[in-house]
Simulated assay, not measured.
Amino acid sequence: MSDFISPSSLIIAAIFLLAGFVKGVIGLGLPTVAIGLLGLVMTPVQAVSLLVVPSLVTNVWQLLAGPRFLPLLRRLGGMLAGLCVGIGISAAALDPDTSGRNSMLLGIALIGYALFGLSKKKFSVPKRLEWWLSPVVGGVTGVIAASTGVFVIPAVPYLQALDLDKEELVQAMGLSFTVSTVGLAAVLMVQGSFHLSVAGASLASLAPALLGMVVGQGVRARVRADTFRLFFFVGLLMLGVHLAWRFGG
């Protein structure tokens, strides 16, 4: 496992602590922050492998916390199917030999997500269009997720455009993130990148992620969400620019 993880365990724990904190405050961002920061010190394949257990546990927790699981599952079934197809099609992008290209794509994905968040634009998707738009959004998200480990673009903006109430939106994101995590884990297992030693390291990352979530939930009541979101998206923008510039040459 020491060959798999080049940075120290303290650095990895700190990254997951911060990522969990962000998720606790604003309800999302654990995979994005963790993958973005881990991408500075390891390949995307290694980062995604470490993320599997913390992402799966925290997103299942978020998914089960809401009251509308079955209605959301029926409504978002097309998007979830598209996610799986997109991840499968793009699975080859997780080849370690393409780590530089994947890191550049990760930077571009983070820049897109940050700019969307900073724009504060709101869109609305008519319900009559969901039957074909949901699979397309899922497929594109799956391709990006398998290439970068980040599964928020364009899924999160799309979910925000469905006029779901607050609880439905949080649960819908948990559902989407859970399916994405399971799909990525399956790809890693098939490719032999997620074996026992890696699973142990991923499990060890769960504790700081959960601790960060608990602390973040406590801070949420004391800090204005809009202020925190501003710093969050500016930080992601800077991180994305760094990764895109570093690996784009």
Score class of each variant (00 low, 15 high):
Asp3Met: 13
Ser6Arg: 13
Pro7Ala: 12
Pro7Gln: 14
Ser9Ile: 14
Leu10Arg: 07
Leu18Thr: 13
Val25Ile: 14
Ile26Met: 12
Leu28Arg: 02
Leu30Gln: 09
Leu37Cys: 06
Val45Phe: 08
Leu56Phe: 15
Asn59Ile: 08
Leu63Lys: 04
Phe69Val: 15
Pro71His: 12
Leu76Tyr: 13
Gly86Thr: 07
Ala93Asn: 11
Leu94Tyr: 13
Pro96Gln: 06
Leu106Asp: 02
Leu110Thr: 03
Ile111Ser: 00
Ala114Asp: 05
Phe116Tyr: 11
Lys121Arg: 13
Phe123Ser: 03
Ser124Lys: 06
Val125Phe: 06
Val125Asn: 03
Pro135Glu: 10
Val140Ala: 06
Ser147Asp: 04
Val152Cys: 00
Pro154Leu: 07
Leu159Gly: 01
Asp165His: 15
Gly174Asn: 09
Thr178Leu: 07
Val179Tyr: 09
Gly183Trp: 05
Gln191Glu: 14
His195Ile: 08
Ala199His: 02
Ala209Gln: 09
Leu211Ser: 14
Gly212His: 12
Met213Ser: 06
Met213Trp: 12
Val214Phe: 15
Gly216Ala: 11
Ala221Thr: 15
Arg222Met: 15
Thr227Lys: 13
Phe228Trp: 11
Gly235Ile: 11
Met238Arg: 03
Met238His: 01
Met238Asp: 05
Leu239Ile: 14
Leu239Val: 13
